[in-house]
């Protein structure tokens, strides 16, 4: 702030409060809807103040799901989402950190080619190559499995670049010292590189967890067995049924549960989240 202008500061507060309210508005309505009975949605306008059926709705969704629309209990779907998000986040970090290590600390033929092959993944989002990728996964017999849900999404150019960047800032003397002391490449990797990039790993994990949890199209295609449904992909099936029978209270309870874990991660790990977001775009 350059000079003292109370009117401008007041205006800024006003803008921010309006912004915060606009951002929160749909979630408030979803929360309110999830605490009412089914009958609240048959006519008139949606309620704007919480009702009394919240515990019953969430309990029903977590325990039984929506039998009329073929949606299994949400608890199982949330566990699937958690497994998928964790495998994707850990898998991406693991294969990227080793690739970055190979690219930065070794000289080998076709090193540049390998780097470019990884770079290309940046240019092929799953939505673009969806039909042939689906066919590959189907041919490998990976439909309806955790491997099919996660492995095709696990290659990551951004994570590889990030670790490459981090490794390039680590002084060469460190590696020379390690070699003089007789440490081999894997010992150097384990005892020096990984501890030195700990906060980068944590920040990246936050971003990748959100990415994994929020996957939609891919889980929708590769899971036809209710045992493997994830909560974000399952919402569409519930919403379709809600359009026919107004069960908005149950759908909105599912919506709240689907966004709770990733939003909690952002709110409680805001520093790591911002670091991860800014770094992966560099």
């Amino acid at each position: 702030m350059v000079e003292h202008r109370p009117i401008l500061t007041l205006l800024a507060h006003l803008v921010l409060i309006l912004g915060v309210l606009t951002v929160a508005f749909p979630v408030w309505l979803a929360f309110v809807a999830s605490t009412h009975e089914v009958t609240a949605f048959t006519s008139g306008v949606i309620p704007l103040w919480p009702g009394t059926e919240g515990a019953a709705n969430y309990g029903a969704m977590l325990g039984q799901g929506m039998s009329t629309s073929g949606a299994p209990p949400l608890l199982g779907m949330m566990v699937n989402s958690l497994i998928m998000a964790l495998i994707i986040a850990c898998g991406k970090i693991a294969i990227s950190i080793t690739s970055a290590f190979a690219i930065v600390y070794f000289r080998f033929p076709f090193r540049n080619l390998a780097f470019w092959l990884i770079f290309i993944t940046l240019m092929l989002p799953v939505e673009v190559r969806i039909v042939p990728t689906f066919k590959v996964v189907a041919d490998l017999g990976l439909l309806n499995s955790y491997a099919g849900l996660t492995v095709p999404l696990i290659a990551s150019a951004t994570a590889t670049f990030l670790f490459r960047q981090v490794f390039l800032t680590i002084p060469d003397e460190l590696m020379e010292a390690a070699r003089i002391d007789g440490a081999g490449p894997m010992k150097f990797f384990r005892d020096m590189l990984i501890p030195l990039s700990r906060t980068n790993i944590a920040a990246l994990f936050v971003i990748l967890f959100i990415y994994g949890w929020n996957q939609y199209l891919w889980p929708l295609l590769v899971t036809t067995d209710a045992k493997f449904y994830t909560v974000v992909a399952g919402i569409k099936r519930m919403a379709e049924a809600a359009d026919a029978l107004p069960q908005w209270n149950f759908v909105m309870a599912a919506v709240m549960l689907a966004m709770l874990p990733p939003v909690a991660v952002v709110v409680f790990m805001q520093r790591l989240f911002v670091k991860g977001l800014v770094e992966t775009e560099k």
Binding site: Y105, M186, F188
Partner: peptide, 29 residues
Amino acid sequence: KRTIFPNRWLPWLLLAPQLAVTLVFFLWP
């Protein structure tokens, strides 16, 4: 880097998982 580890097969081993996923699920499709 100015200094590197002299090793011929280890870097390929380290790159193998990422390259395998890229080839099977990105380049081939």
